[in-house]
């Protein structure tokens, strides 16, 4: 028996083990289409995830409450009980004020937006880390469909990848599978924003002569019929022009971090769709 003994039975089992995943790779994941046998797994996962998310929320609140209590105890040793109680009350009021400001901001955004929006809470992130997807607590029963835009008042988050009755999976703009039609706001140079890493994107297919500088704001075109027109995506951090080639590569820092997003909006219906449809109709009539 050597250090690496050759056992054909083992080699056969290993080959078999490698073949099964290779076959599974060929089964493509289509947007919005799930095999019937996968549905129960999605639904069960969603149920457990929602429960855990609710539980984690409670734990978070309990932890912060406990920390506040420790603070109060410390202060009690130094100051009067009444003073500590007031400070604790002030802390709670401050957190309520912050929450109030955040919710008012969200409400204002929803009110002023010309599009039909649906608010949702982020309940989870991608398990494996190679992709950057989010899970939200609204699904097909709330009118969500694959391909709809997901935004926050500060900028684009991504688009809906899959929906189930009670939850949906969102593909964020930093994911390599993501592609968004975009323009440089200042020069109107057009390209496609694609995910590059968990926190960065790239603006691709810009022509070499297109005017783009570090600090430029990148916004959506609205022509894809998914995202509202002129909605901010991110800021240019680096422009790379190689010695050869007809295009240039632009690095973008998204305005919204997917890690910080607790609440998002799904664009159920964008008015730009009608504009795009009208334009298409006009063009087809001309032809």
């Amino acid at each position: 028996m050597g250090f690496f003994p050759i056992d054909f039975k083992k080699i056969f089992i290993i080959c078999l083990l490698v073949t099964i995943p290779m076959i599974a790779i060929n089964i493509q994941r289509n947007e919005g289409e799930l095999s019937f046998f996968l549905k129960p797994f999605f639904i069960t996962a969603s149920f457990i995830q929602s429960s855990v998310s609710n539980y984690s929320d409670s734990v978070q609140k309990t932890t912060s409450l406990y920390l506040n209590l420790i603070d109060i105890k410390k202060n009690n040793r130094e100051m009067q009980t009444k003073m500590s109680a007031l400070e604790a009350e002030l802390l709670i009021l401050k957190s309520l004020e912050q929450e109030n400001t955040r919710l008012t901001e969200l409400l204002e955004f929803k009110k002023t937006s010309q599009h039909k929006l649906l608010g949702a809470r982020v309940i989870g992130h991608d398990l494996l880390g190679q992709h950057t997807t989010l899970f939200i607590d609204k699904g097909s029963k709330d009118g969500i469909q694959p391909g709809q835009a997901v935004i926050t008042p500060r900028g684009v988050i991504g688009s809906v990848l899959n929906t189930e009755e009670d939850f949906s999976q969102v593909l964020t703009l930093t994911d390599t599978y993501s592609a968004i039609d975009a323009v440089v706001e200042r020069s109107q140079a057009r390209g496609i924003v694609e995910g590059a890493s968990p926190s960065l994107c790239k603006l691709k297919y810009l022509q070499r002569t297109d005017d783009v500088l570090a600090g430029d704001l990148i916004v959506t075109t609205g022509l894809d019929g998914i995202f509202p027109k002129g909605f901010p995506i991110g800021k240019v951090t680096k422009v790379e022009k190689k010695d050869y080639g007809i295009s240039q590569e632009v690095q973008i820092q998204p305005l919204v971090s997917t890690f910080d997003s607790e609440a998002v909006f799904i664009v159920l219906k964008t008015n730009d769709i009608q504009a795009v449809e009208a334009k298409m109709k006009e063009l087809s009539l001309k032809d």
Partner: peptide
């Protein structure tokens, strides 16, 4: 697979 965008394979 239900918790990630990674293909099952």
């Amino acid at each position: 697979f239900a918790l990630s965008a990674e293909p099952l394979g």
